[in-house]
């Protein structure tokens, strides 16, 4: 017998072991749900898959009698719009401020204590302030995402920029590069993939802030819907929504990873099979 640390699963094995927890969780749910329903056919806590499928059909594929909208798609669109806007603004701000902080000593001296303190302010604690200042509509939700995510992105990017070997920056100067040219041709191209990775890491917090803001004040959105139907214990809507949000987050993470691999071929250069 070889030690277990030296035994590796094959290709099929990886699929099997990867699928196992998912299948296990699904089976566990099915059994628990069946047991509860056998006891009380009107139980709402663990609805059967058929009930969830029916709920999804109702909210996603039939127009709402009141508004004529397909609710799930309208919610998805509203949420993704806020998320995209918030993350877009945060990313743009981080790109400019982060690189400036990492590269220009005066900007670093001026901003780094401020950003360090700012990043410690719990965003949820300032949500009421945002609602008061920006009103209850779209803006305050977008601003919450921006406030919550930007300091992390800035600090991460400033650190990554600062970690660029000093030799590279000196070298670029000996090639006659001005500060602007160095930013454009040396720093920015190397920082973009780092920024994309940082955005991937902040997808989780961004969704958290979005759903929290929607739960408190909104008229549509994935978070709004979940908290609305909670009053009716509508687990058959909540669970598919949670799964849908998870899927959206997973896909955006995957797309960002793909973006890095596609747009920055030098990242992978020299690492194994090319």
């Amino acid at each position: 017998m070889r030690r277990i640390i030296n035994r590796r699963p094959g290709r099929g094995g990886i699929v099997f072991w990867g699928a196992l927890p998912f299948l296990g969780a699904a089976a566990l749910y099915a059994v628990a749900s069946a047991l509860r329903l056998a006891e009380n056919p009107n139980d709402k806590l663990l609805p059967p898959l058929s009930a969830m499928a029916a709920a999804v059909a109702r909210i996603a594929f039939t127009p709402d009698p009141r508004t004529g909208d397909y609710l799930m798609w309208a919610d998805t669109l509203a949420s993704l719009h806020r998320l995209g806007l918030g993350l877009g603004v945060a990313t743009a701000a981080a790109l400019v401020i982060g690189i400036a902080m990492g590269l220009i000593p005066y900007v670093r001296a001026g901003l780094s204590p401020f950003v360090a303190i700012l990043s410690m302010v719990p965003p949820m604690a300032v949500l009421p302030v945002l609602f008061i200042v920006f009103g209850l509509d779209e803006l305050s939700k977008v601003v919450l995402i921006v406030v919550g995510v930007t300091p992390f992105l800035i600090r991460d990017l400033a650190m990554r920029t600062g970690e660029l070997p000093a030799e590279q920056i000196v070298k670029a100067q000996t090639l006659g590069g001005s500060t602007w040219q160095i930013v454009l041709r040396v720093v920015l191209p190397q920082m973009l993939p780092r920024l994309v990775d940082a955005v991937r890491l902040s997808l989780g917090p961004a969704w958290l802030f979005l759903i929290s803001a929607e739960a408190i004040a909104a008229t549509e959105g994935l978070g709004y819907r979940i908290f609305l139907v909670r009053r009716y214990l509508a687990m058959d809507v909540i669970l598919p929504y949670v799964a849908w949000i998870t899927l959206l987050a997973f896909v955006s993470d995957y797309l960002l990873r793909l973006f890095n691999a596609r747009c920055f071929p030098w990242l992978k250069a020299g690492k194994g099979s090319a």
Binding site: P165, E167, V170, K171, Q173, T174, P189, Q190, F264, W266
Partner: peptide, 17 residues
């Protein structure tokens, strides 16, 4: 540093991207 003085360091002298 300026273009009148070229340099080759021991490491990190070229741009990886």
């Amino acid at each position: 540093p300026g273009p009148d003085r070229g340099v080759v360091f021991q490491r990190y002298s070229v741009f990886p991207h």
